[in-house]
Amino acid sequence: MTNGRVIETERLGKSYGRIEAVKELNLSIRPHCITAFLGLNGAGKSTTIKMLLGMIRPSSGDGTVLGQRISNPIEGVRLRTQIAYVSENKRLYDYMTVDQMIRFTRAFYSDWRPDEEQKLLRQFRLPLDRKVKSLSKGMRTKLGLLMAFARRPELLILDEPSEGLDPVGIEELLEILIARCSDGTTVFFSSHQIAEVERIADQICILHAGRLVLDSSLDDLRQSYRRINLVFPSIPAEHHFRIAGVQDVRTRGHQMSVLASSNAEGVVARAQDFHADSIDVAPVELRDIFLEKVKED
């Protein structure tokens, strides 16, 4: 592994004709952590994940996953036996039954754990004799998850693992992710469930229009992001508050609202210079940070 990183990419890019789906992406994922990969639909998350797995070739840049080059097709095949992956569309064979699908998958992996398979079958209440074709969206997701979680891989990559799951299913999924991480597996997953991500992720990566716009630990975000709401006797010009760390400034009447990714104390000091009547500093939720990062200018 490069610098002990499980995933490392350098200026990774993918273009489809004139459309750049992923641009100059530098990812660096630490081992034994839970990393959430966030972004709007079409931001390039699935394209990135498929490049990491060697399923599509990068147009530019390169990277390593578990120390193996993703642009090398031979290493890519070896890689896919060391990673458990749940795809976005939960690619399954519709004509098989659940039981056939599991037995078929099991044959490919030496790290398969029959005890874990049995446990997950009971937990997910999957009907063994049903055709995959007739499964609900949530059931399909659970079957896809079972086939990844029944193994003991070094790295778990999940593309939208909570798709179609009900609240109980999501809770079960989170518990399993936590258990796998406790066992030392590195977890990298994309999701739209920001509230859940905010609980279990160690690290957050936000992709927007193919670019990485945020790469930070959640603890750092919690500690440094603040919303500062101010009231002034007469409102100063916004540019006085566009100082280091400030992401956004809005004014309405006598009120000003400042979003700072750091340096909240600088904003407070500036507000005092302008004789603010009221200074109110509040923490910022991940949802608000996300919305700010993917805002169209």
Partner: peptide
């Protein structure tokens, strides 16, 4: 405790 609180074991 991580599973009970639904947080990362690293926490």
């Amino acid at each position: 405790l991580a599973q009970e609180l639904v947080v990362s074991p690293n926490t």
